[in-house]
Design a binder for these strands. Structure first.
Lengths: 229, 229
DNA sequence: GTGACGTTTCGGCCGCTGCCGAAGTGTTCG
DNA sequence: CGAACACTTCGGCAGCGGCCGAAACGTCAC
């Protein structure tokens, strides 16, 4: 009787196409009403409702009631981390020259992964910060004193991130690039700062991001990162 | 068509009790013949064979043919990492005083998580190393120069771990304790050293470990870690 | 070669699950 | 208060998936 962790319920919850679409949509950390999710997945409202009930039952998703609308969202950063880890497994390794749709290409450039920056932007930042001694180790991404000062200097709530209940820094393996980037409470704080400062803007819907001209200039000026490369 | 990562196949693969048992058994990184897995899960050989084919198809498991026996094992450390992340989600947080079977208690004390030490032993080591400056940061577990020297001094193949293709250090969230411990190539190197030196021994089957008297004395002498606490 | 053995493939049964449309519940708006 | 709306629950259908035993396959031992 050596079974100690039962993946059955989680697996069943993940194992339906419509639910997979829902989770992907919710990976940006936003809450969405049931109807929007139903439309996005191409199923009827009743079917979507049943799917959402399954996800809630499995603990992957939580609901907030807003009047006659119900907003569904991921149950927490741990869920997002698990989905990222799982996502890193699916599909073959991205061989160079693999053809991508324009949509995928935009996602690969910059996006939110639940609450922190990901895509090539996230990786470039982690690279630069490791290079310049703001993070101690490219593999582990530990925050140094210099890094704490530097991030405070650009308006990131470093102390809030350190005080948070979740781990301050955490590595997250990128889906598209297969490289690590910064997650955890600090990653979330950086993401909030980038949005607030207007260095990135959200796509109309979903977790895609566009780096603004101001953002592009800022990262080049501050860390010498050239995002057009 | 915003779906970019499809969890359906992985989810279906995880969503059967017998397969969950298989994966749990394989979490120690060992390969096992189909028959043994069938017996452990309480299903017929034919059923087990079908399940294993599903797991292979999903990329979670690989086979090695040894004569007329076939040994199944996890497809890599990324799979183990994803399963750990998923496992951290299941079940309620371990409220204090929660009753555990003796089997579970032994697993909670020390075990292999795919290829690195986990359980209270793994956490105690991470704590001690962070405390003593061998790892830069309890949250990120970045290896310091002092840590590299120290681990080399006790016979851990630090340089091999640094040169490895996978990340040198990585944090892994413990199932039972909900705390981070050291994984990645360095975690694996530490695990190999602990086994080779006889500081831990494997249980008869599965991923459980017993810390030997020599191991207990060693960790107390070297880092002041008292495992009886 | 022949027989034993570990594993896979096949056929068939049963139950679960996804899907929908219709009806029901609760909320907002006029 | 009643109609419109967002969502959930219910009933019913179709198909998939898990299970087994029987048979086929490949390998090892003698």
């Amino acid at each position: 009787m050596g079974r100690d962790r039962d993946f059955t319920q989680l697996g069943k919850a993940l194992g339906a196409p419509a639910r997979s679409v829902f989770l992907n949509l919710l990976m940006d950390g936003a809450r969405r009403p049931a109807g929007e999710l139903a439309r996005a997945a191409g199923v009827s409202a009743s079917t979507a409702s049943e799917h959402l009930a399954v996800l809630v039952e499995a603990g992957l998703v939580t609901v907030e009631v807003h009047g006659r609308s119900r907003r569904y969202g991921l149950a927490g950063s741990q869920v997002a981390a698990a989905l990222e880890a799982l996502g890193a497994l699916t599909g073959p390794a991205p061989v160079s020259g693999y053809r991508r749709s324009r949509q995928m290409e935009r996602l690969a450039a910059a996006r939110f992964c639940y609450d922190h920056l990901a895509g090539r932007l996230g990786i470039a930042l982690a690279d630069a910060w490791a290079e310049q001694g703001w993070l101690a180790d490219r593999a582990a991404l530990a925050l140094t004193d210099a890094g704490a000062d530097g991030l405070r200097g650009i308006g990131v709530d470093v102390d809030g991130a350190i005080a948070a209940r979740r781990p301050t820094t955490r590595v997250c393996l990128d889906w598209t690039e297969r490289r690590d980037h910064l997650a955890g409470a600090l990653g979330a704080a950086v993401g909030r700062r980038f949005l607030a400062a207007g260095w990135v803007v959200r796509h109309a819907s979903g977790r895609g991001l566009d780096v603004t001209d101001a953002g592009r200039a800022f990262v080049r000026r501050t860390w010498g990162v050239d995002l057009n490369a």
